[in-house]
């Protein structure tokens, strides 16, 4: 079970949190102007990177706030957390084959 540092409540066990997938996917302002392919890409596709990944979590059994996590999806190392709307901090980007 991961230990996730909620930016508001501090480090808490993973079972207090919910997962929200890839971060910084902005909902298109005018979806009707998107092609079917572009829209499907927004709705269904995620990068799912092996390595450093920017993702969203919600502290559902805590402060109920959404926030961003930078996590190495291979090692589960949490490289940074930051609030919604914040610019992602610089981290050492881990990549794997």
């Amino acid at each position: 079970m991961l230990l996730i540092p909620c930016p508001y409540c501090g480090a808490r066990a993973e079972n207090e949190f919910g997962y929200g997938g890839e971060a910084h996917k902005v909902r298109p302002e005018t979806p009707e102007n998107l092609s079917d392919g572009q829209w499907a890409d927004y709705v269904f596709m995620q990068k799912n990177t092996k390595g450093t990944y920017h993702e969203r979590w919600v502290h559902s059994q805590g402060c109920r706030r959404w926030f961003n996590v930078i996590r190495d999806t291979l090692t589960n190392e949490i490289q940074a957390v930051y609030e919604m709307g914040e610019t992602p901090p610089e981290v050492d980007t881990k990549t794997y084959l």
């Binding site: 409540c9 059994q61 402060c63």
Partner: peptide, 11 residues
Amino acid sequence: VKQTVFGRHCG
């Protein structure tokens, strides 16, 4: 004051 999960998924 801490909020957490009690038992199985009870806040």
